[in-house]
Design a protein around this nucleic acid. Sequence first.
DNA 1: TTGAAAGCGCTACCAC
DNA 2: GTGGTAGCGCTTTCAA
Lengths: 343, 343
Amino acid sequence: MNLKQLATHLGLSQTTVSRALNGYPEVNRDTRERVQRAASEHGYSPNRRARSLATGRSMAIGHVIPLRTQHEMMNPVFADFIAGAGETYSRNGYDLILSVVGPRDEEAVYSELFSKGAVDGVIVHGPRAGDNRIEMLNRIGLPFVVHGRASDTPGPYSWLDINNRRAFDRATGYLIDLGHRRIALLNGLEDMDFAQRRRQGFLDAHQRRGIEPDTALMCSGEMTEMYGYEALRPLLASSERPTALLCSSMISAVGARRAIHEAGLELARDISLITHDDDLSYLRNGSNVPMFTATKSSVREAGRTCAEMILRSLSSPDLPLQTTMLEAEFVLGQSTGPAPASL
Amino acid sequence: MNLKQLATHLGLSQTTVSRALNGYPEVNRDTRERVQRAASEHGYSPNRRARSLATGRSMAIGHVIPLRTQHEMMNPVFADFIAGAGETYSRNGYDLILSVVGPRDEEAVYSELFSKGAVDGVIVHGPRAGDNRIEMLNRIGLPFVVHGRASDTPGPYSWLDINNRRAFDRATGYLIDLGHRRIALLNGLEDMDFAQRRRQGFLDAHQRRGIEPDTALMCSGEMTEMYGYEALRPLLASSERPTALLCSSMISAVGARRAIHEAGLELARDISLITHDDDLSYLRNGSNVPMFTATKSSVREAGRTCAEMILRSLSSPDLPLQTTMLEAEFVLGQSTGPAPASL
DNA sequence: TTGAAAGCGCTACCAC
DNA sequence: GTGGTAGCGCTTTCAA
């Protein structure tokens, strides 16, 4: 059933039917009701393609996910974030177009999506330090919001992020204050913006206390389980093994725990472990008791917010820059786990 | 730059330019080359909306993800599956439209996507036993492929699945043959098709060996970390605690391990743990050594395959039914972990 | 081998 | 308050 058919069926013009359905004020109340009833009876819903061709708006937002390798697991954060965003979109009649691309093709994908009229705006995922996508999007005039930030990128842009630096500053400081001096850091790939900030937090906490971190204990890599295992194993085998471990993701922590187990060590007794959990934006200690907890939001909620930001920037493009920062609040859990006996 | 502009720029008609770009044979070779050069020079790419309005094909596939609760984490399997599917789509010029919906609205979403002309076909995720979506999609004539299966659903349909029943049959049998008699099962929600099959495999292994499973040890729930923790805790506290545990997902296994740790028990020594890992379609034992490994594919690869299935069924709708089954092959790892001392 | 023109389904402008 | 009509950018007959 299309508009024309519905109109002839009702003995009205397409114009009137369209107006009635789109809430234009000048339509007679009776007419509007009659039209609406008929529309839902016949299950009529306007063709998106035709509508967007006529209006010039595509009513869709693009999410472009960069994946480096063929084997890389999609970051679970993306999934929940997108799920949250999707809720907002469907509530507002928008579609979500998902593109998963290698880092090379990314720019091309953005401009294609735009010039093809497929999307009205995009969300940028996984920003790297000095990311050139941002400048490029500003240049071609495609509205966007960044999930995360990109340091060293000139010019204003909208973004939504958690406070990665501070979270790792606090977690590290907590461990140092417990007496730890040899703390390992299993970080993400350090060309990613979030990983740079976490590293910075790690270093800041040391520096503020006048302690020299052992750079040999700082690792960086794709946050897979295998990485957690392989990065930690040699550190544990060394004569000067770390007494504490700061993990950048749940998944690499699983690998790290395997390495700890195989080395004959016991968590909490021999080595302390704090893992950053993106999903709930909190940090956990070795016995998995929440230690840092975000007050504001989960990743899903962040996705919702980010979607609202892009939709708002579509309706008022020259609105002042919206920057939202989700703070990982410091909340000591009931049990913070024992200080390691080996200290 | 649109077709009209490009055409006038070249001093040709829109028709000819369109034909040249779309590979119609009747175009003069020189003309075609000239057109193609100009197109890439000016970065022309046809407007998707307009094209699909004209052709009647939308060049997009919908993925509809059902999420039960506001809080449920998006199943990581979906993410990687979709990433894989996305690769296939972009290689073939298709868009991927993602809708995340509550179980109630699902049917409406499908028929809307279709009647709005937003998609040419859909992938059905997370099928439940006797899922009525399948019958509904057949009725409205929207091409689809199911990721998973739905038992008790009449009529043929295309699907792609792993062998859940057999995987759990084998894992359970393996534990029984090691001497375990009290095996706990932390299953997913048992209205989901995959969970029913896993449960069946668990029961089959017992029955074939003439052993009565303790139904008090069989749990079912949303596969979150909290669920793994809360479901296992009372079982461990009981006087007749399980000596082995079969976990339906990595994430609930994390919670289960926490419960084990808190109960003062040690993995492998006091209790054996086998976890099903969807991503690599393998099962792991307590020390994380792969025990069952899929020979054919990861979830990502499955996504690619599923996308190929739907695209193929678009071009030839009355093709014989394609059913593909990914087998979780039984491969004993180098180390299968010690039999529990408590036996 | 090329071009003119009719539509795809809808919105939006201008008349009435 | 309602209707005619001109597009939106493309594909696809039909003519030349």
